[in-house]
């Protein structure tokens, strides 16, 4: 059929180009439609509504002594809450001027200087850095040390040395009162 039709309309000009135009637009619309129909499949792999439902975690920080840290779970991830000592706050402040791979002031990272709240996930490849317990190594900068590939974080959770590219992330949190924080 198509061949005969082309032969009949084969004369230069009108017929052929109209056919080409129809063929091209139909193919383009068809291809775009087929590509778009992939989206539901792809998107079904993204976090589902229940996973997304932003759970928040309340933490009572009153029992945490100065110099101690606790780890709480938020959205399935560990969050480090550290009650910093005066010395730790001091170094975090003076290190604002140090050569930082991911420059950020300590003041931007901690709502209240005594409390540092960061995600306990190494920004390299996602291991949990050591340093929450006093028995664990805290790295060369007194914060945390990631044993997986050797990343050192300082007392403000900033990356100082090793393969990790960014500072430990600060999750969204707020003090609901003096002794309670709400993460998320």
């Amino acid at each position: 059929m198509a061949e005969t039709a082309t032969e009949i309309q084969g004369a230069p000009g009108t017929g052929e180009s109209r056919r080409d135009f129809l063929l091209l637009t139909t193919t383009a619309v068809g291809a775009a439609g087929a590509a778009l129909s992939l989206w539901p499949f792809v998107h079904s792999m993204n976090p589902a509504a229940d996973v997304l439902a932003l759970s928040s975690t309340e933490v009572d920080i009153s029992p945490i002594e100065e110099g101690q840290s606790i780890t709480v779970v938020w959205r399935g991830k560990p969050v480090f809450v550290r009650h910093r000592t005066a010395a730790e706050i001091e170094t975090a402040g003076t290190d604002d001027a140090a050569n930082l791979p991911d420059p950020q002031k300590d003041g931007e990272r901690a709502e209240k200087p005594e409390w540092l709240v960061v995600l306990g996930i190494c920004t390299h490849l996602g291991c949990i850095p050591l340093g929450q317990k006093s028995s664990e190594p805290r790295g060369e900068f007194g914060g945390w040390f990631c044993p997986c590939h050797g990343s050192h974080y300082d007392t403000s959770g900033r990356i100082r040395k090793g393969p990790a590219p960014r500072n430990l992330e600060v999750p969204p949190y707020a003090f609901t009162d003096d002794t309670t924080i709400k993460i998320g």
């Binding site: 792999m45 993204n46 976090p47 589902a48 996973v51 399935g76």
Partner: peptide
């Protein structure tokens, strides 16, 4: 996040 279908391996 897409690979995980969440915010961590779960």
């Amino acid at each position: 996040t897409w690979l995980w279908g969440g915010f961590s391996v779960d």
